[in-house]
Design a protein around this nucleic acid. Structure first.
Length: 907
RNA sequence: AGGCACGUAGCUCAGGGGGAGAGCGCUACCCUGACACGGUAGAGGUCACGAGUUCAAAUCUCGUCGUGCCUACCA
């Protein structure tokens, strides 16, 4: 028998590379477009091409991989569709930075040339994250990898755009949008991140035109006053009734602007008078529309004051604020300044303060689309898990506003719209038109804007499968089974996929949406490069192995709570991988010449331990299956951890060692009895439990399980092709579990005494178990080997209740009293203390039980079974207490007698 | 401002109306022929606080405090 089947410690690096290459080569990740098998599909949340793998990706993809591997083993036809996202703004920024280093910018290159450079960049660096996903073990069908800028996906984008336009669900118009002066583009509402900001509330006096006093307005942005075209008050505001039909002179600009009356104005805020800047505030814009006011833009697209700003032209908007305030102060029009906290929007890409900006943009009218998306979740066509996110989803969907989809950047899907130079006709079409349908003019200029990246992402579940063609892939795999994603893109992405999927496929894009937690650092802070608290997944994989990393993520993935990740945790789970490795190493030492098909099942004579471990395994299969089916990854992972470490290793392997080694044990009368080498059954059980454990664990820790699997006799091919274990009712064996519980309890009692009384592990002692229960006695006698072996006994005596053996420490388990003979080494004082502690615990428990049983209401109203249970417990406790107190009396007496003697104590 | 989570052992967290759990850490003893990335035993908790429902509350309800997060057009 070779003891070198496995190395002493598991070394992940080489194993991972070898098996991943093998899986890919064998095409084990491939989905079948046509198959009799049940389809199971997931589309990957496409990472940015510019991205590098971070903890969020690692977590997200680990969960998806677990599901996919599990489903494959369950016999499903699994499609895990991979790909990346073109990430318009982010990618453009990255390439612009590269250009900047060369002393160029995109404008000097020109649009076409710039886009060429982006593609070049993508060829060179864009695949990085895909390689990193492979390191993690992701079993995506890589032959189907997609990119949102691919020809096929671009066609899908154009198709959707044209159809929505024709249906009146896309429109173009002048509105206030969020503008990033640095990125030089419009942003959607979602791309603006609000942050509280300590600013000021400035009170400014606008003199009345007739010179009779003035009106004071309050504002946080005095620089916008340069573009004011009115002052508004509430029509119900008593204070301002006299101002009807009047006008004020706008300070610094000396422009006459009217006082208007609008219900929007809050009488309780500030002075109840609101300055109106239709070109630089969304609400002012609405008010301006209602009152037919001019919209004067005073801030340019670069964030600097323009020619409309008079003497402030050229100043940055924040410099201008200071200057305006100063000028007002000089003119005596600044009434007061109060500190004021308000939230300010920032660009999600570059953190620049966003400017509300009036410009022509394209929008999707989302209300009609949202209605269907809401209904789909209400009817359960799509489930959101955990359910708590359903409410958030509805909340947002019900208050949804039109989506600004045009971006003034170059990298992205160019909007398929053309304007006729001759007559101004707007043409939206799949292909570039050759002539204007209105005037037949041929000078047509294409829209320069591109679409929001999320517009193409919204089509991902069907565009990746070949839509708008009616492909076999779509027939087989749409709707997808589940979408696994973080809540941070619930609105950005999930909600929009729901809308687009329902509209164009007439079917939800996914049956389930599993929303997982965010990975944070050990202190619960969001990981970010600027904070410097990121843990690089690649570093983790190198240091601890992909399996340890994956298992950690799964084990910590409790629904609805963030994951606080630290290296210590990962190290802890690496120990688990190592434990499994060594359990396998041990098993393989005894299985090297084992032929599972030869030791036929019908000849099996299962021992108690065999029956027990198989019964427990059966329970584990049930729990793991349930856990995975309900997305309770942590429960499945922890069940396996517990079973492998504590039941399989700590108990089963320890119990069968003597059988496997064929060693001798002492029988009750002291004679040596040699264990027959009939260990074929044991070997069979050992083999099958390990075999099944590997299959159960494979979705979580694919590499190490594959490595061991291939060393295990009687297995063929990849573990990926093995069946996921199924519950087998015949293995369920409550009797074996009950018997083992007794044996483990008695063993535990003896070990407790040994530990507490400081008996050296090397010393074998004699134990006596007294029990009035004949069945318990028979069990103990029949299985004394187990207790003798695991409690390190010289001898185990089993008798009916009787005289107390001398020089003993005592413990009680069930209705058995355990005596451990400590001849010459017993320290009566220590034993007294130990018994007192033990009795103290029981008294505490009895108090609680007693209180219940003396409560008349409990006895009459609680279910009969519960009352019986408590009664039985009380009886057990009283009996145990009596026994221990008897022992305490004896020991105290002995301790008193020996007071003068120096009792040797083992330390 | 509103909404949603969460306060359980020193730390990180499971659990979720009738016996307070795990991992890590800690203490003691052990290199026993798979594993010291190990073994055995042990210490440690008014389950945030206050009320309510109930025979019974860590668990359900309400409130308070604290901590996160999300959504908000009141300048």
């Amino acid at each position: 028998m070779s003891s070198h089947l496995l190395r002493k410690g598991y070394e992940s690096g080489e194993v991972e590379r070898r098996w991943y290459a093998y899986w890919e080569k064998e095409g084990l990740f491939a989905a079948e477009d046509v198959s009799d098998k049940k389809p199971f599909s997931i589309v990957i949340p496409p990472p940015n091409v510019t991205g590098v793998l971070h903890m969020g990706h690692a977590h997200n993809n680990t969960l998806q991989d677990i599901l996919c591997r599990y489903r494959r083993m369950r016999g499903d036809n699994v499609l895990w569709m991979p790909g990346t996202d073109h990430a318009g703004i982010a990618t453009q920024n990255v390439v612009e930075k590269v250009l900047a280093k060369e002393g160029k910018d995109r404008h000097s290159l020109g649009r076409e040339e710039f886009i060429k450079r982006v593609w070049q960049w993508r060829e060179e660096y864009g695949g990085l994250i895909i390689k990193q996903l492979k390191r993690l073990g992701a079993s995506c069908d890589w032959d189907r990898e997609r990119f949102t800028m691919d020809e096929g996906l671009s066609e899908a984008v154009r198709t959707v755009f044209v159809q929505l336009y024709q249906q009146g669900l896309i429109y173009r118009g002048h509105y206030i949008i969020n503008w990033c002066p640095r990125c030089q583009t419009a942003l959607s509402d979602l791309e603006v991140e609000h942050e509280d900001h300590n600013g000021h509330l400035y009170y400014v006096r606008y003199p009345l035109e007739d010179g009779k006093g003035g009106i004071i307005v309050a504002t946080t942005r005095p620089e916008t006053m340069l573009g004011d075209t009115a002052v508004a008050v509430n029509p119900n505001d008593e204070r301002y009734q006299a101002l009807k039909g009047k006008a004020v002179i706008l300070p610094l600009m000396n422009r006459r602007i009217p006082i208007i009356f609008d219900e929007y104005v809050d009488m309780k805020f500030g002075t109840g008078a609101l300055k109106i800047t239709p070109a630089h505030d969304p609400h002012d814009f609405d008010i301006g529309q209602r009152h037919d006011l001019d919209a004067i833009k005073v801030i340019g697209s670069d964030g600097r004051m323009n020619e409309q700003a008079g003497r402030f032209q050229g100043k940055d908007r924040f410099e201008c604020r200071e200057a305006v305030v100063e000028a007002l102060r000089e003119e005596g029009l600044l009434e007061k300044v109060e500190p004021y906290q308000h939230s300010v929007g920032h660009c999600y890409r570059c953190r620049t303060t966003v400017e509300p900006y009036l410009s022509q943009q394209w929008f999707v009218k989302v209300k009609p689309l949202a209605e269907k998306a809401i209904a789909a979740v209400q009817t359960g066509a799509t489930r959101i898990i955990p359910d708590t996110w359903t409410k958030t989803y509805f909340e947002w969907m019900n208050n949804i506003k039109d989506w600004c989809i045009s971006r003034q950047i170059w990298w992205g899907h160019r909007i398929p719209a053309w304007t006729c130079e001759t007559c101004g006709e707007l043409i939206v079409a799949m292909e570039p038109p050759t002539a204007c349908p209105a005037c037949k003019g041929s000078t047509l200029v294409q829209e320069t804007d591109v679409l929001d990246t999320w517009f193409s992402s919204a089509l991902w579940p069907f565009s990746t499968m070949g839509w708008p063609d009616d492909t076999q892939t779509l027939k087989t795999f749409y709707p997808t089974s589940v979408l696994v994603t973080g809540f941070d893109i619930l609105f950005f992405w999930v909600a929009r996929m729901m809308m687009m999927g329902l509209h164009f496929m007439k079917e939800v894009p996914f049956r389930d949406v599993y929303i997982h937690a965010l990975v944070r650092d050990a202190d619960g802070k969001k990981m970010s490069k600027s904070k410097g608290n990121v843990i690089d997944p690649l570093y983790v994989i190198d240091a601890f192995g992909a399996d340890a990393f994956r298992f950690t993520l799964a084990a910590l993935a409790a629904q609805g709570r963030d994951i606080k990740l630290s290296e210590d945790r990962i190290e802890g789970y690496r120990h688990f991988i190592n434990k499994l490795w060594n359990a396998a190493r041990f098993s393989l030492m005894h299985l090297s010449d084992f032929q599972p098909d030869v030791s036929t099942q019908d000849a099996r004579q299962l021992s108690l331990a065999d029956r027990w471990i198989l019964s427990r395994l059966n329970g584990v299969v049930e729990m793991v299956t349930k856990g995975l089916d309900e997305y309770k990854f942590n429960e499945a992972a922890m069940t396996l951890y517990q079973f492998v470490w504590h039941e399989f290793c700590d108990w089963y392997l320890e119990i069968i060692k003597p059988v496997l080694y064929g060693s001798t044990v002492s029988s009750r009368d002291g004679s040596e009895v040699s264990k027959p080498a009939h260990n074929e059954t044991t070997r069979f059980v050992l083999w099958s439990v390990l075999n099944e454990v590997l299959r159960l664990l494979h979705p979580f820790i694919p590499f190490v399980t594959e490595e061991i699997w291939n060393k295990l006799p009687g297995t063929e091919g990849s573990i990926m092709k093995a069946e996921f274990p199924a519950v087998t009712q015949e293995r369920h064996d409550p009797e074996a579990e009950a018997i083992m519980n007794l044996l483990m309890g008695i063993t535990g009692g003896i070990r407790n005494i040994r530990g507490e009384m400081n008996v050296p592990p090397s010393m074998r002692v004699t134990a006596t178990v007294q029990s009035a229960d004949r069945e318990a006695r028979e069990i103990l006698e029949a299985h004394q080997d187990i207790v003798i072996n695991l409690a390190r006994l010289e001898t185990l005596n089993v008798t009916p209740p009787g005289k107390r053996p001398p020089s003993c420490a005592t413990s009680v388990f069930g209705n058995s009293t355990i005596f451990v003979s400590l001849k010459d080494i017993i320290d009566f004082k220590a034993e007294q203390a130990r018994l007192n502690k033990e009795i103290g615990k029981i008294i505490k428990e009895l108090e609680g039980v007693g209180k219940k049983l003396s409560n008349e209401d409990f006895l009459t109203k609680a279910p009969q079974a519960v009352v019986e249970g408590v009664r039985a417990k009380q009886e057990r406790l009283v009996e145990k207490k009596n026994k221990l107190e008897g022992q305490l009396r004896t020991v105290s007496q002995l301790a008193g007698e020996l007071e003068w003697t120096k009792v040797p104590r083992m330390n």
